[in-house]
């Protein structure tokens, strides 16, 4: 983060320029008000009927844990972080077998994945009024009222169960893969 934090002298200059622009530029001053006011009381969000949205920040722990498992079993981080341009398709293909077999094993061991729609892709299906818009995304010629009839382009995936390993207290999930030193 330090690289993005302006230095003291930079900040000093910034403070002076902001002082004068805020004083003389009314629109700019409005932006500053928005910047320093907490979003919950932001005037534009306070529409008479709308509820105040509550946004969650997902805990990074389980994301890091899953990434660690994909690396451990399927070498996923190694694969994504490697420069592929210098290799032939055959070489990349050989590595993909490692990634595919291991990541798939990790995925199946820790998540239960089910397709959202059971029909074959390409089948015609009808969406009834009140369909679950988070599980089904209608696309293309989207006009009028449901029922909508269309072609299933992707079956979708839903995770029905997550089984992540339990962690000992003090376990550092930021270590995706420890450095290895052969003695």
């Amino acid at each position: 983060m330090t690289g993005q934090s302006p230095s003291f002298f930079h900040r000093l200059g910034l403070a002076f320029s902001l002082f004068f622009r805020t004083l003389f530029d009314a629109r700019f001053a409005g932006s500053v008000v928005k910047l320093i006011t907490p979003p919950a009381v932001e005037p534009e969000a306070a529409d008479a009927t709308a509820e105040i949205p509550v946004l969650h920040q997902a805990s990074p722990d389980s994301a890091l844990q899953l990434l660690g498992l994909l690396q451990q079993e399927g070498r996923l981080v190694d694969f994504l972080e490697e420069e592929v341009a210098q290799y032939s398709d055959a070489e990349i293909g050989a590595a993909v077998r490692v990634v595919h077999e291991g990541s798939r094993k990790a995925l199946h061991a820790h998540l239960t994945l089910l397709p959202i729609r059971q029909e074959a892709e390409g089948a015609r299906i009808t969406l009834q009024p009140g369909f679950d818009a988070s599980a089904i995304r209608p696309t293309g010629n989207l006009v009028g009222e449901p029922p909508f009839t269309g072609t299933l382009a992707h079956r979708g995936w839903r995770v029905t169960e997550v089984r992540l390993p339990k962690l000992a207290s003090g376990h550092d999930v930021q270590i995706i893969a420890p450095a290895e030193v052969e003695l």
Binding site: R75, D78, F79, E81, E82, V84, Y87, E91, I92, A94, A95, R97, V98, V99, A177, E180
Partner: peptide, 14 residues
């Protein structure tokens, strides 16, 4: 296929 141990997965896979 046999992966190598280094972080070079593609380069190290036999």
């Amino acid at each position: 296929v046999v992966p190598g141990r280094s972080s070079k997965l593609i380069g190290g896979t036999l």
